[in-house]
């Protein structure tokens, strides 16, 4: 899809993009994984990103979350051109990413997981300091109940939680730190139907909190249940971009 076309799309949706990507390319040595992506993501919308394995979905979001630099192209975030050099920088901008497996550290407690690399400190010297455990505990309890996750105690070890609860912890973290954009890369893979529904309801809940959500999945049904808009990718390009209300599943599948 050309950049003019996506600009037109944006205009329809009330043109206030939080992220604008222009002519984004990514090469992995020999592989041309992104071949000129133009995409506007509107503030507060929930966008579903679909496509077969290898289409380039993860590559696109890895660039947005600071894991890899793009080979070329521009990213405008919140009206400013940005270079996202590290995950830390993405977080600072307000872009939080939840991956299928590595969103939490199973051997650590829920509270500690919520605050990894952003621990509330009692005092610190040069960035190192003593954790304010009381505050961490209290804020963790609040963060969990804010997303409707009712767990016994934030001191429980994450390895004891189900897959859906683990994703809930990661979502609670993003909400607690007031991220503007929440990216979920295949958050429902290997989850039971019940847990998948829980995650989908989390994604739906983003909208009411004013958070922009990017939901990646190769399950079109999950995307249609939880998103306003669907973008389909194939072989490093965007091949379809439509409002969920305007398409049927069969039409979407025909693009892939």
């Amino acid at each position: 899809m050309s950049s003019e076309a996506s600009a037109v799309r944006g205009a329809e949706a009330g043109d206030d993009p939080i992220i604008s990507v222009r002519d984004l390319h990514k090469w992995y040595s020999g592989v041309h994984a992104l071949q000129g992506i133009d995409l506007d993501i509107q503030r507060g919308e929930s966008l579903g990103l679909i496509g077969d394995n290898g289409a380039g979905k993860s590559t696109l979001i890895n660039i947005l979350s600071g894991v890899y630099p793009p080979s070329s192209g521009t990213i405008v975030f919140d009206g400013r051109p940005v270079r996202i050099r590290s995950p830390k920088e993405a977080t600072r901008l307000g872009i939080e990413t939840i991956y299928q497996y590595n969103s939490v550290v199973p051997s650590m407690s829920i509270a500690r997981n919520l605050f990894i690399s952003r621990e509330p400190l009692r005092w610190s010297i040069g960035g190192f300091g003593l954790i304010d455990t009381k505050r961490m505990h209290a804020e963790a309890t609040r963060a969990l109940s804010d997303v409707g996750l009712h767990l016994r105690s934030p001191d429980a070890v994450v390895s004891e939680l189900s897959g859906g609860q683990r994703q809930g912890v990661a979502i609670a973290r993003a909400m607690h730190f007031k991220s503007k954009v929440l990216i979920l890369d295949e958050p429902t893979n290997h989850l039971s139907v019940k847990e998948t529904n829980k995650v989908i309801s989390f994604v739906r809940g983003l909208k009411s909190q004013g958070v922009t959500g990017i939901f990646i999945s190769h399950n079109i049904q999950h995307v249609m249940q939880s998103c306003d808009r669907v973008v389909a990718m194939a072989r490093g390009k965007i091949v379809a971009d439509c409002r969920v209300a305007d398409v049927t599943m069969d039409e979407l599948v025909s693009h892939l």
Binding site: S65, V67, S86, P87, K88, T91, T97, Y99, Y101, N102, S103, V104, V105, P106, S107, M108, R112, I116, S117, R118
Partner: peptide, 14 residues
């Protein structure tokens, strides 16, 4: 603990 427990998550979280 995060680096040893799940290095990818630790790195992704900064």
């Amino acid at each position: 603990k995060a680096s040893g427990g799940q290095v990818a998550a630790a790195a992704a979280l900064g």
